[in-house]
Write a protein that binds this DNA or RNA. Structure first.
Lengths: 116, 116
DNA sequence: ACAAATGTGTAGTATATAGTACACATGACA
DNA sequence: TGTCATGTGTACTATATACTACACATTTGT
């Protein structure tokens, strides 16, 4: 499923319950032209900028990191974290590439609990 | 220290031992025009593409992830890893933002040793 | 029935990215 | 002393990114 298809699907779902989720009204709220949002949803153009994707995520109640990923992007705040300690993060992320989901969850939990 | 300054410094250091590290010769080996490399080193233009930065890292014996970071970029292979599991990685990386270096090293080691 | 709202086609724009091509003055070195 | 290599200034170029503006046919609500 492409970025555009995903957005269309979820926007349409919301629209069926609330007319304020038309292409035109959502476009206006996130600050783009309706024709542009229409083209994005149909995959006629590439996904928009990170800022617009964030606005869209907020508007549709979706996870911005997931939408960004579907758009082929990585959140700029994550990139900044990595850029500050490139060796450590590059190494760690490559190690974690093939780790199972539960391992990533556990590490996040351990770090949150200060277990190091 | 900027990307350009760093490159110039390290290239010059190599050049003092080996004349093959002139702007012209390095430029040729990494596949760009000498004038372009010159401008990069003086910060006259933005850092080059990821591919050229990798070639430069190889040529100068530097860590590509560090050079990419100085250029304001994050390796595309790391981005791909993140994009495949955006929620897990986004969460984890934000948790690790303020973790000390030794914690990151330890996690990488634990994962490598399969300690989960 | 008709006014308002809707989705979309076409055309165009501004800015960024990632460079090339060539000429020229200076410096090394044999 | 001549030539060969070196670093750099100037002038372009091609492609990608991120949109806007407007018109128009269709659909929907009252």
């Amino acid at each position: 499923m492409t970025f555009g298809e995903y957005i269309r699907e979820h926007r349409e779902a919301l629209k069926s319950e609330d007319r304020r989720f038309s292409v035109r009204q959502v476009a206006q709220r996130i600050g783009v032209e309706p024709a542009y949002l229409s083209k994005i949803e149909r995959g006629d153009v590439a996904p928009p900028s990170e800022a617009k994707i964030r606005a869209l995520a907020e508007e549709l109640g979706e996870d911005p990191d997931v939408l960004l990923a579907m758009a082929g992007k990585v959140s700029s705040d994550l990139q900044e974290i990595i850029r500050k300690r490139p060796q450590l993060f590059a190494d760690l992320i490559r190690q974690l590439k093939s780790a199972p989901d539960h391992a990533l969850l556990r590490i996040a939990r351990d770090v949150r609990d200060g277990d190091w």
